[in-house]
């Protein structure tokens, strides 16, 4: 099904975005065109400016509108610890927990040869450069707990083994509020491996 002119162009453009299939693209396009309560102007303005305004922190690779991001600039953060994540959205996720007060490093993905991503495509040299700062004492690897994230964590831990640092991996295991009975075996197995001493 094809429409004439601009509306089809809009559908095509929306359809190029990740997570938007042909049906969603069509629905969004007609919403933009038809809904009397919807003003598309703000979205247009933002799209127009966004690429000029948003950039990536020269230290950690997180999104920012300045040379460096708010976290890297914040003197109250613990500059001894760096948490390594795959994407800026992971920074946002960890920040929401308010559990972590250190710094971040965004790799820009995970190792995945199928998608043509090797170590060269990740921001690893920038991370190693940051380690020349003697204040840094701990690296927390917080890549995703899937096959690609694990491979990335293993690769990083080998690279980091030459430094005098504490390298930790985020624990993976049982979801809080979950039911042991319904946990899949791999998760349960990991939870066993990552069990901790309750102390006496």
């Amino acid at each position: 099904m094809a429409y004439d002119g601009l509306i089809q162009q809009l559908i095509d453009e929306l359809g190029r975005l990740p997570g938007i299939g042909p049906k969603s693209a069509q629905r969004i396009a007609f919403h933009i065109v038809q809904d009397p309560h919807y003003d598309p102007k703000p979205l247009g303005d933002i799209l127009d400016r966004i690429r000029d305004v948003v950039r990536f922190c020269t230290i950690c690779g997180n999104v920012t509108e300045q040379e460096t991001c708010a976290i890297c600039r914040d003197p109250r953060r613990d500059h001894r610890t760096i948490c390594v994540v795959e994407e800026p959205k992971d920074v946002a996720a960890i920040e929401r927990t308010r559990e972590y007060r250190g710094l971040y490093h965004v790799l820009g993905g995970a190792l995945s040869p199928i998608n043509g991503i090797g170590p060269e495509q990740l921001h690893i040299p920038a991370l190693l450069k940051r380690l020349s700062d003697p204040n840094v004492t701990e690296i927390i690897i917080a890549t995703d707990p899937n096959v690609e994230g694990e491979a990335t964590a293993t690769y990083l831990s080998r690279q980091l083994s030459v430094y005098d640092l504490t390298v930790t991996r985020l624990a993976s295991g049982l979801p809080v509020g979950g039911d042991l009975e319904y946990a899949d075996e791999v998760t349960l197995g990991r939870a066993f491996q990552g069990r901790r001493n309750l102390g006496t």
Partner: peptide, 28 residues
């Protein structure tokens, strides 16, 4: 993933010595 890495290394003539990331796949 490992086979894909092997194929791209072969295509780009990357020698064994520079293929450090293969170990991270081997572990898993």
């Amino acid at each position: 993933q490992r086979n894909s890495l092997l194929r791209s290394a072969r295509a780009n003539h990357i020698p064994q010595s520079q293929l450090q990331s293969i170990a991270s796949w081997d572990t898993q």
